[in-house]
């Protein structure tokens, strides 16, 4: 997964063509840590989606700019527009179902 931050978020996510997934996480968030291996697994299944992760500890303002104020949150963008938004009590199965929906 590509590490995104305030330096590269614009280029890698917002101005990027196609589907980009961003996993908002923090080392203090236990549910996030549990989720990450599953997201990494999904990365292998969806080659047409660019998988990124964003550590909110160093990029708090950036996350808030994307209206993310709770973890875990996963957003999927298509051509810079949010198309999927999952927050709090979702499972990796929910995420996979959403990815199948948008990536076909």
């Amino acid at each position: 997964m590509l590490e995104v931050n305030k330096e590269n978020f614009e280029v890698e996510v917002l101005s990027s063509k196609g589907l980009v997934l961003v996993d908002f996480w923090s080392p203090k968030c236990v549910p996030c840590m549990e989720l990450i291996p599953h997201v990494e697994e999904l990365e292998g299944k969806f080659e047409q989606v660019k998988f990124c992760k964003l550590n909110i500890l160093e990029n708090r303002r950036l996350a808030m700019g994307q209206k993310v104020m709770g973890l875990p949150t996963i957003l999927v963008y298509r051509d810079g527009e949010k198309v999927v938004e999952l927050s709090k009590d979702f499972t990796h199965e929910d995420l996979e179902a959403k990815l199948i929906e948008v990536a076909g």
Binding site: K28, C29, V30, C32, R60, M69, G70, K88
Partner: peptide
């Protein structure tokens, strides 16, 4: 607004509120 300011887990989300 769950995950957008509504939270049930302080340790998960406290960092947002500095």
């Amino acid at each position: 607004l769950k995950g957008k300011g509504v939270s049930y887990c302080a340790t998960c989300d406290a960092d947002f509120y500095e």
